[in-house]
Every structure is written in C-alpha cells, then in structure tokens.
Design a protein around this nucleic acid. Sequence first.
DNA 1: TGGTAATTTGTATTATTATTCCAGAATATG
DNA 2: CATATTCTGGAATAATAATACAAATTACCA
Lengths: 158, 158
Amino acid sequence: MKSKNFRLETIKAIISSKEVGSQEELLQELKKEGFKLTQATLSRDLKQLKVAKAANSNGNYVYVLPNDTMYRRNTQHFSVNELLTHTGFVSFNFSTKVAVIKTRPGYAGSLAYDIDNFGFDEIVGTVAGDDTILLVVREDCNEAQVKNALMVLIPNIH
Amino acid sequence: MKSKNFRLETIKAIISSKEVGSQEELLQELKKEGFKLTQATLSRDLKQLKVAKAANSNGNYVYVLPNDTMYRRNTQHFSVNELLTHTGFVSFNFSTKVAVIKTRPGYAGSLAYDIDNFGFDEIVGTVAGDDTILLVVREDCNEAQVKNALMVLIPNIH
DNA sequence: TGGTAATTTGTATTATTATTCCAGAATATG
DNA sequence: CATATTCTGGAATAATAATACAAATTACCA
C-alpha cells in the first residue's frame, strides 16, 4: 500500500510545484524522484488523482490538481439558451454613454465578467459592485445598439 | 467578432450544464445549438477558454471550467521532498486509539485531507478543526505504527 | 473605400493520452 | 499459509487532442 500512495503523493507534489506539460515530462520528474513506471501507469494514476490538463495564461498546457468547484454543474437542467439567460439581470438604464445594469445581489460580478469577456465592440469597459454594473459605452453607440448587443448574453434585457 | 464569442459562451454554458467527455461529443452539442465547426477549431476554443479535462468520481473523463485556484502553484521552490514536509505540522500525541495532531493555524484541514486521501490502513478516520486533527486509530495499532505510517506525509513527525 | 494587418478556420497530420490484453508481482485477508 | 484482490509492465492500438500551413474572413486605418 505504501509505494503507490507515495507515488501519487509525489505526483501531486510535483504538479503543484512546477508546470508540467505532458505525461512524458512528468515521467521524467518521477524518475528524478526515484520512481520507475510507464506511461500507461501514469495515465492510470492521473485518472485516479483526477488531475486535469488545461492551458495556462502563457498558452501552454499544464497539469492541474482538482478541486471540488471544478466539478460543480448546474443541476437545474435549463436549455443552453435558458442557461445563458440566468444572469441575475434585473434592469437596464442608459445615460449619455453610460449604461447601468442592476442585477440580483451578488450577480453583478459574474455578469460583468461575462460582458468583459465577450468583447463587445460597443462597450469600452465595465465596473461592477455587488448588484450594479456600470458600462462605459463607445462614443458612437446609442442605447439601442448596446441593448441589442447585450441581448446575446441577456436575452430578457428588453 | 460576434460569432466566435457567442460560440465560446455557448461552450461554457454546455460544459457547465452537462458532462461532456470528448471534443467529438461537444461538437455534437454545438451542432445542436446551430454551430458548425471542426474539431481543430474546438480544440483551439477550449485552449483559449482554459477548459480542462479530468476524471470525475464515476471514472469518466469530463471537461471542467477553469477556476483560479487550479493554477495556484507553490511559488517557493522547495524540493519535492521538502514540499511533502511542509504540512504545518506542530506536534503529535497519542492516547488510547486516538491520536492528536496539532498544526499551525489553518493547516489542520489540508493535512487531514491528505491523511484521509492517503488511505492509511492504521487510521479509521479523522476530524479536523483549524489547528487540530483528531485521528481515530484502528484497534490493533499502536502509537509507533501510526507515527511510522504518517512519516510518509509528515517526515518530521519524530 | 481600398488595402494591409490580424484573426479565425479547415484540412491534414502529428502528438499525446487512454485503454486493451495479458501475465506476473505485490498486497491484502482470512 | 492460501487464496483473492489489486497493481503493474510491456507492447500495441485505439482514441483523442494539438498544431502547421494555407485560405478565408474580419478588423482597422489612411
């Protein structure tokens, strides 16, 4: 029981201390630590550890340790479209190149994040509190245009 | 600029609502939503979104959305061995099938987690507070055995 | 508006990872 | 101790995902 668990611990330790991009690479690191195993076994280990591989901000793929939030799913089964709708949106107001979106408490951040991420041409930037988002609108855009654009993320904006 | 961002949003929506196990599968879902694209493009999308793939508790591989904690690395560069050592361990005491580990404040949870995960035969279960872990020890194990076993995780336990 | 730069995409190919089959070790268990 | 269970390597192979390259599309600016 010792050897395997120790190997798994070591894998976690390696992954959490340095960026590893492939199983080959990880095998090398493990070899350095005195382990001898094949890619097949490592693949099994990673599966058991639920280690994931994803791109980092540098555009490299790296292994990452799992955490519970990763696996959280929207239990309520909405359609994809409905899902996109559940943004906590409450109201939309416009005033001279500044738009204000009110959301349900706590929703402002994530909605603003989505808006930022979407990269709307019409929107210069956003600032979010807990239930309010300020949108700075591009000079040559009007309320209708902004509303229209946001409809992709907030279908019930009208 | 619209089409792609909308596709990315949809990918996130799909992944966060159902378990998807391969890019092929995800392509099908996207097709259902009216997108037409190739595996190559999807691969690039997933890279950009930093979507990860890992095993879930059912032994299936699923895509998971990234979260910041995933990418946290131990910046201080310890050797793997040193890393395994930094558990916040402070002291170990034993009293009739119950062991008590004191840790530095805040470390009890993660150490207990590691202990649980290791699956020591000698340990029936653990309960952790903020700086204290209670270990319930198997009837036929003594202090030395437990200490010995734990040494894998806490090299400086002696 | 025309033209160039930058981004996005598909195709084809390569790289990487998961799994299979199987037999032999290693470990647990009673 | 004997048997059952788990683990592993070896050797492919199947499955999956990443990318080089060129074409197409879109953004941007004088």
